[in-house]
Computed example of a mutant assay.
Amino acid sequence: MTQLQFTLDMEDLKEMVMSSNMEAVVRSSIVLILNEYMEKERDAYMQADHYERSGERQDYRNGYYERAYTLNIGKVELRVPRTRSGEFSPTIFEKYARMDQAFMISMLEMVIHGVSTRKVTHIVEQLCGERVSKSFVSSLTEKLDPIVNAWADRPLNTVYYPYVFADAMYTKVREHHKVVSKAIYIMTAIREDGRREILGLHVDHSESFESWFTCFEKLKSRGLQSPKLIISDAHQGLQKAIQRAFIGTSWQRCNVHFKRNILDRAPKKEAHEFRRMVKRIFEAVTIEDTRQFKQECMEKFADQPKYDKALQLLDEGFDDTIQYMTEPEHIRIHIRSTNSLERLNQEVRRRERVIRVFPNTQSAFRLVGAVLMHYQETIYDKRQSLTK
């Protein structure tokens, strides 16, 4: 590496010390050092002094230009030397470009972790003495687009996913000068080796058969093979989409949602025995006991009209809700409900609530995708396999 020797104009520095406060002295000193360093770098690059005729000359000096630069002490104005060819570039910008990049990543991390753009601008101002606009922070987050898009489109044909979870949540998006609700579809899975993985997401106008079918077709185009079970709530469009997209795949109705729906249809008072018997059905260890407990419950309350709606729902949805009982015992607790996916949705909601209203659909996709990627890396990837 070339060693550069240079001296500073001590008279200028002395004047600054005598007439300025220490903050101004520090900033001015740094400007003097950086300007002198860049000047000497250009001299070394030129391989010729001013007006010197030399066969080793690389280029010709071409004055200076002013450049504002933000450091950890705030913004400074530098006098950057340039050459006629334009090929010379001071090395200090390479160093501080890396610092800038780290700073930008930090701002992105704040946004992903649920810090509003307004708060991010305030934090930057406190750290650097330099205010950035909310629009700048918003435009900065667009740098996430290729990263999130690549993650959302990654191949799924390298491993088998026997159990897939599907659910949708709603968020507010500004569209054509109006605030509308958009459905965010999130799909996760348990791999054949027992590890959890977030498969992807999709944003659409509403939760419907067409939208769910589009989601599943997208997963298939990325290489997803037909799973054994798809676990979800009882949305009719979702059920139809599963039947259409995955031949031979069974639908597991969320155990928790199903029990809640049954108990909601039961009387609010004097139903302790009914509630106990319903819970016992889904706590059974064998599928034979599950069926027996269900039959006992049906027979015990069959002659009480106030339980008719609850018993009808129990009878109609029972088989779809015990699909998990045909799977190995160690995995049943993990696939009988969508609780794991709902916990993930809550984490997304916690970050999304800070935004309140997304400026457009792409921004919703970007932030939710970034949150899901972060959750995968920090939570799912660090957990042990469910088979262990």
Rank of each mutant, 00 (worst) to 15 (best):
Y161F: 13
H176K: 14
I123E: 09
I186A: 06
R131M: 11
A183L: 08
F136A: 08
D145C: 07
Y160N: 07
G114E: 02
S139T: 11
V111Y: 15
P146Y: 04
E142Q: 15
G194Q: 08
I190A: 01
Y170T: 08
C128A: 14
I123V: 14
R195Y: 14
N149V: 06
D153V: 02
A102H: 07
S135L: 12
F213S: 08
V180T: 03
P162I: 02
S208R: 15
I184H: 07
L199M: 11
D145P: 09
T188D: 02
M169F: 07
F213I: 02
T121G: 06
K182N: 01
G129P: 03
L156W: 01
D153H: 10
S208M: 12
N157K: 04
W212L: 05
T171I: 15
S211F: 10
R195F: 14
Y161L: 06
K182P: 02
W212G: 08
C128G: 07
A183G: 12
K172V: 02
Y170M: 08
I198N: 05
H176N: 15
Y161P: 03
F213C: 06
Y160I: 07
S135G: 09
S211P: 03
H122T: 08
L108I: 14
W212M: 09
I147P: 06
V159I: 08
V180A: 07
H122K: 13
E207Y: 10
E210F: 13
P146D: 00
G200Q: 05
G200P: 03
V124I: 14
V179C: 07
Y185H: 15
V137M: 09
S135A: 13
E125T: 04
T188I: 03
M169C: 11
R118A: 11
T171V: 15
I190M: 03
Q126N: 13
F213G: 01
P155T: 00
R174H: 13
Y161G: 03
H202F: 05
G194F: 09
G129A: 13
T141L: 05
L144G: 01
E207D: 12
S208V: 05
K134T: 04
F103C: 10
V137T: 05
S116I: 01
M169S: 14
K143P: 06
E207Q: 13
F213H: 15
D204K: 15
H122V: 05
H177L: 11
Y163T: 03
F165V: 03
L156S: 00
N157E: 11
H177F: 04
L156M: 01
